[in-house]
């Protein structure tokens, strides 16, 4: 791997976990890119906040429950997780409903953070 200046990467997750493949694809890309020692942020907005909901049980839909993997992110040194407050509130959710520690930001705070990024990947 070539040494270089770490760039700021942001992954923006806006989809619910099982209705489409986006959430799982995003998580896989995050895990792979964690090997490249960049400054990575994960953002959960809109239905993306459902990805982090505690208590998912997927036996009935015969789909892999990948929600425990979000708890592995810390071990991959991916520690900047942000959730938009407005997205939580409009879904009747609070920070306590989430299975990992996150920073809850307002839309405008999130907008500022997004503006600082070098690369933004949308899912």
């Amino acid at each position: 791997m070539t040494e270089g200046v770490a760039k700021k990467f942001m992954f923006v997750n806006r989809t619910a976990p099982y209705g489409t493949i986006y959430a799982l694809e995003s998580l896989e890309v995050v895990l792979i890119s964690a090997a490249f020692d960049q400054d990575v942020s994960l953002v959960f907005v809109d239905d993306g906040v459902w990805q982090l909901k505690k208590g998912q049980q997927t036996k009935g839909i015969e789909t892999k429950n990948f929600s425990p993997t979000y708890r592995a992110l810390e071990g991959y040194d991916v520690e900047k997780l942000y959730v938009e407050r407005e997205s939580l509130e409009s879904r009747g959710l609070t920070e306590d409903d989430l299975l990992v520690d996150v920073n809850v930001l307002s839309s405008s705070e999130l907008g500022e953070l997004m503006a600082e990024q070098d690369v933004v990947l949308s899912f």
Partner: peptide
């Protein structure tokens, strides 16, 4: 069992 992935070597 805990995380549902096989860890990267570094991890």
């Amino acid at each position: 069992d805990e995380y549902q992935i096989a860890p990267a070597v570094r991890v």
